[in-house]
Amino acid sequence: MSAEKCFAKGSAAPGPVPNGHIRLYSMRFCPFAQRARLVLSAKGIKHDVVNINLKDKPEWFLEMNPLGLVPTMETLAGELIYESPIICDYLDEFYPEKKLLPSSPFGKAQQKMTLEHFSKIVPLFYKISMGKKSGDDVSVQEAELKNRLSKLNEDLVNKKTKFFGGDSITMIDYMMWPWFERLEIFQLKHCLDSTPDLKKWAELMLEDVAVKATMHSVDTHKAFGKTYAEGKPNFDYGL
């Protein structure tokens, strides 16, 4: 069961987590929540999704997680977990079938180091996109973004692999993907022109079953973004 339409202030809380499932509190257009949905899909974990209106959050959700963050995950035992990397690591450990993280401690450390590097890139996507919309000069930030993306490209070149953890998709690929899905929305797709291996990686990611199951079209992203920019985000857009 997935409650596609979002729950807002005044709404009744959903029932208990279905037996044999795990519940994800999400928002359909949130890239951080998409990380968790990618992992749930890739690992074939039975789950339901409850979408939250992030502008008008339900009282029961704020009691559950006073920070009001998505993704938040609730287990059958009522345990609550939030922050997307923590949720995804938990899912990989608790559901050991089709492991996404490397088995070696060094392999895990490598992925966490790559994720730490990528976490410095994420704010640039938003700064540049917002700056362009405001008519600001974002050339310095765009140069920094290209430099950081080139380092990711070098990582793939040095490893001589299709993906960041080898020749099949692993956790780190899913952790980074949501922002690459949105490159055209950020008006930054051209930043991959000088990073051919990274560009090829993005093309290969589009062929993945979990990516296909969780992504939105460019037009849908743009339409939601327009409602967000107008101050009236339509979290149910397209339903």
Rank of each mutant, 00 (worst) to 15 (best):
Tyr174Val: 11
His216Gly: 06
Asp219His: 10
Cys191Ser: 15
Val218His: 10
Lys212His: 07
Ser217His: 12
Ser217Met: 04
His216Cys: 10
Glu203Asp: 15
Lys222Val: 14
Asp193Arg: 09
Leu204Trp: 05
Val211His: 02
Ala213Lys: 14
Met205Glu: 01
Gln187Trp: 01
Ala223Phe: 04
Leu204Pro: 01
Trp177Met: 02
Lys222Arg: 15
Ile172Cys: 05
His190Pro: 08
Lys212Arg: 10
Trp177Gln: 02
Ala223Asp: 12
Leu188Met: 06
Lys189Arg: 13
Met215Ala: 12
Ser194Phe: 00
Gly225Gln: 07
Asp193His: 10
Met176Phe: 05
Ala213Val: 12
Trp201Gly: 01
Asp197Pro: 05
Ala213Thr: 15
Pro178Thr: 15
His216Trp: 00
Thr220Glu: 09
Leu183Tyr: 02
Gly225Phe: 04
Lys199Gly: 11
Leu192Met: 04
Thr220Val: 08
Met215Glu: 09
Asp197Val: 10
Tyr174Thr: 14
Met175Tyr: 06
Gln187Cys: 09
Leu183Thr: 15
Lys189Trp: 00
Lys226Val: 11
Glu181Lys: 08
Leu206Asn: 14
Ala210Trp: 00
Leu192Tyr: 02
Ala223Thr: 15
Asp173Val: 05
Asp193Trp: 00
Thr214Tyr: 00
His216Val: 05
Phe224Val: 08
Asp208Thr: 06
Met215Gln: 14
Met175Glu: 06
Thr220Ala: 10
Glu207Asn: 11
Asp219Phe: 02
Ile172Gln: 02
Ala210Glu: 07
Thr195Val: 05
Pro196Asn: 09
Ala223Cys: 10
Leu192Ala: 03
Phe186Arg: 12
His190Ser: 15
Leu198Trp: 03
Ala210His: 07
Leu183Glu: 08
Ser194Arg: 13
Leu192Arg: 01
Val211Cys: 04
Met171Gly: 11
Ala210Ile: 09
Ala213Trp: 00
Met171Ser: 12
Ser217Gln: 11
Ala213Cys: 10
His216Asp: 07
Leu206His: 08
Cys191Arg: 05
Cys191Asp: 06
Ala213Asp: 13
Asp197Trp: 03
Ile185Asn: 08
Ala202Leu: 03
Pro196Arg: 05
Lys199Phe: 00
Asp208Asn: 14
Lys199Cys: 07
Val211Trp: 00
Ala213Pro: 10
Arg182Ala: 12
Met205Pro: 01
Phe186Thr: 15
Ala223Pro: 08
His216Ala: 08
Trp201Arg: 01
Lys212Ile: 06
